[in-house]
Design a binder for these strands. Structure first.
Lengths: 344, 344
DNA sequence: GTGAAAGCGCTAACAC
DNA sequence: GTGTTAGCGCTTTCAC
């Protein structure tokens, strides 16, 4: 039972192979009745075009490359992040009959540029998706740009307008988290900022301020502590905030690690979470579910972002649509156990 | 700058394309001097065969499929596991000019069999690697077997002798961990067994007993507690073991989750780790580094196992070598902070 | 709108 | 040992 070829379909539909090809590739200039005949033959025969033959004849592969930071290079907490990106990209690729080539890539390696160029030269992908933090590294973006391959960048800190960029609504969702805390009756809501170089994290601070304003609460410098994204810095900031006479009843940290640090310190100080202190994080990493109490946080829509990127790439190949602008994929609050009504 | 083809290489080397093809595919019947000429031309031109053309002409893809349990289906602590498998397989594929197609797959879905068959039919991979726990599921293994595609199973609980199986030395390394604990002066070393259905975990218990014997310690039923792989069961077992009058000075758990449970209970009971109690786990999951003190454990060589599987698959395609038997990839102790000298 | 013919870059079968 | 000749299954070009 060799699998059917385009010739089999053409014979069965009573047309030429070129017409079948047109139908398969959704090209114009096919009469509706002809298209239907061909589609029926395709369905009857369960015909699936041979990707290798398509690639060979068309000089481009039905394949998308997903580039992300190689976790083996240092630690592996990022694996959940990668898996979610893969899932989203995979979903879009499968639907379109594309393949997904994964390419972990160590940006600390001085040859990344050449490595990417060679990869592209070898597989000639229809497009490339670059995930953060790589999506913001000039040497990587430039190397890909130089090959002329369609590129989509995920959550880059800055946008250069040359490619499509997919981001999430960090600022807006952070405002929403702040409003949520306010709606629980909290009036002294503290914020722990992240590492200053991390742009997305900076947006969360802006969102926090927006949220305060939208809730009619006034901002106070004394309720902001400067962290650096690590658990340890979360602990230090928590110490600083909780030792004050008039301590906050809620602490919103710019990422989950710092929020976990807050919980740890609260435990140490005998402050009950969420009864006496609500704690919220951001990112929804695996740790958020492992701490006790489980952390209320913001779920990054990584899978949806990667899926959107892949869909856009595939559409641009097929329809010659330009890949430009910015797509905002909304995040969502993950309400768990670490937040609750403000104490009296 | 169109990339060079086999014709360019043939012209430059002054041979026919078939000879170039022979060199590229490491076929016999090429004079050494000819081979060298061709290899030089390949290097000069930076020639890389076009995979699509190779696939089309040879009716098989230079591609390996890695099948693993889809984490989206339930939780995501398995992402580190998946990433490590991918890294190993990727490494082998890159070296050989193969591609890796990743295929997360939900075995709870009743259509998995058909899904896999269709995938195989569509991409015609050179081989398939199936990771645990899928590697032990009859409906998955049978579906793949039915297609005749070369298959390698990773860490299946049972071996059926029809395919190559890659496992780790669970029993031996567990014995080593036990000897390590004994070498620290511990004489009352307890063990927490895992879920009985989990074969690999059962081997760890055997290794524990081996290790005791090799260290000249005598086994005692009273130092064994039966867990079920969860953190909670680790806590219960720890309670049971630590409340005894003559409590153990070291506890070796059949997995990291249970070991984490032990640490939690020790903390609750005011028993200092590692000063008063050494705790060791198994698997080296991300949690092992997150608990305090960081867990001494056994590092599963997942990446190396997947790499071996891919290398074997590629070799079997090229050299028509049969894929049979069992390869044992050794694990290694990860000594961290949760183990130390036995108290006086 | 549709089709015929000419490859894409490689491997397979067989000749030499 | 090495080369020749056919394809593999599709897209492209261009004719109709």
């Amino acid at each position: 039972m060799p699998r059917p070829t385009i010739d089999d379909v053409a014979t069965r539909a009573g047309v030429s192979i070129k017409t079948v090809s047109r139908v398969v590739n959704r090209e114009p200039n096919v009469r509706e009745s002809t298209r239907e005949k061909v589609e029926k033959a395709i369905a009857d025969l369960k015909y699936r075009p041979n990707p290798s033959a398509q690639n060979l004849a068309s000089h481009r592969a039905r394949l998308i490359v997903l580039v992300y930071d190689d976790p083996s290079a240092y630690e592996v907490p990022s694996s959940g992040y990668i898996i979610r990106l893969q899932q989203g990209a995979l979903k879009a690729c499968r639907k379109a009959g594309f393949e997904l080539l994964i390419h972990p890539c160590n940006y600390r390696n001085s040859h990344v540029g050449r490595e990417l160029r060679e990869l592209i030269d070898q597989v000639r992908p229809a497009g490339i998706i670059v995930a953060a933090p790589l999506s913001n590294m000039p040497k990587i973006v430039r190397a890909i740009e130089a090959t002329g391959t369609p590129l989509v960048r995920l959550s880059p800190g800055t946008r250069n307008g040359k490619q499509l960029t997919v981001v999430t609504n960090d600022r807006e969702i952070s405002a929403e988290m702040t409003r949520y805390l306010a709606s629980l009756g909290h009036t002294r809501i503290a914020f722990i900022t992240g590492h200053p170089s991390h742009k997305a994290v900076g947006n969360r601070y802006l969102g926090y301020r927006d949220g305060l304003e939208q809730s009619g609460l006034k901002f106070s410098e004394s309720l902001v502590a400067a962290g650096n994204n690590s658990i340890g810095s979360g602990e230090e900031c928590a110490m600083q905030l909780l030792k004050r006479k008039h301590r906050p009843t809620a602490i919103f940290a710019a990422n989950d690690d710092m929020a976990a640090g807050v919980i740890r310190v609260a435990d140490r100080l005998g402050i009950k979470v969420p009864e006496e202190l609500s704690v919220a994080g951001c990112d929804d990493i695996a740790l958020a579910r492992q701490v006790y109490p489980a952390l209320t946080t913001i779920n990054q829509p990584l899978s949806a972002m990667a899926e959107y990127a892949a869909v856009a790439l595939i559409a641009s190949v097929r329809g010659k649509r330009p890949l430009l602008g910015t797509e905002i994929v909304p995040a969502a609050l993950q309400i768990r156990e670490s937040t609750g009504p403000a104490p009296d």
